[in-house]
């Protein structure tokens, strides 16, 4: 009895592992499109600025085959990307992972743009605020167009420009 139980358990484990493997192998082989979807996110360290999915070199071909093998082994996209990163460094990723100094890639441009925007708006307010009252009445901007139709305003503006041309 005990023996049969042991055998059954053993058989179950065996079959389990067998079925598990069979299950993994049973899936259809990865298509080129599945391989390319991952390769697109990688750059090989040699071919400058050519994503792996379109790189024609032999080395890149091999990398794609490696992705295919890993896919058929049931590895996930993240695992495959991580594998290449571990092997060859951050350089293989299309964009630097946001760690350490790499944060600067993502932080600096928005910061600079924001600073630029703030400087621009502050100086525009400075330029416009106090002076509008003084110069707004008699200056060039005195033609308040709100009481006329924009069409006429345009004609006036246009004629003025035409005059200038002559």
């Amino acid at each position: 009895m005990r023996k049969t139980l042991l055998i059954t358990i053993f058989a179950l484990i065996l079959s389990g592992s067998f079925f598990g493997r069979a299950f993994a192998q049973d899936t259809t082989p990865p298509t080129d499109d599945e391989v390319n979807a991952i390769a697109k996110q990688l750059f090989c360290p040699v071919c400058e600025s050519t994503p792996l999915d379109v790189c024609p070199t032999e080395a890149c071909h091999d990398w794609r085959e490696q992705i295919r093998t890993m896919l058929s082994e049931g590895k996930s996209e993240e695992e495959i990307l991580q594998y290449f990163t571990d092997q060859y460094g951050d350089k293989v990723r299309a964009t630097p992972p946001a760690t350490g100094l790499n944060w600067l890639v993502y932080i600096l441009p928005p910061t600079l743009i924001l600073i630029g925007a703030i400087i621009l708006f502050r100086s525009m307010r400075e330029w416009t605020k106090p002076k509008t009252v003084e110069t707004g009445v008699g200056g060039e901007g005195s033609a308040t167009p709100s009481d006329r139709s924009d069409q006429d305003d345009y004609v006036a503006r246009f004629e003025e420009e035409l005059k200038k041309r002559k």
């Binding site: 750059f43 360290p45 600025s49 994503p51 460094g89 951050d90 350089k91 293989v92 990723r93 299309a94 964009t95 630097p96 350490g100 100094l101 790499n102 600067l104 890639v105 600096l108 441009p109 600079l112 743009i113 630029g116």
Partner: peptide, 26 residues
């Protein structure tokens, strides 16, 4: 700013950390 920083950053990274990075299309 985005373009310049993207082009220059791999150099900066390599210079300070020795780590090469790619700043790609995404």
């Amino acid at each position: 700013v985005v373009c310049f920083w993207g082009v220059i950053f791999p150099l900066i990274s390599e210079l300070f950390t020795g780590q090469k990075v790619t700043v790609g299309p995404p």
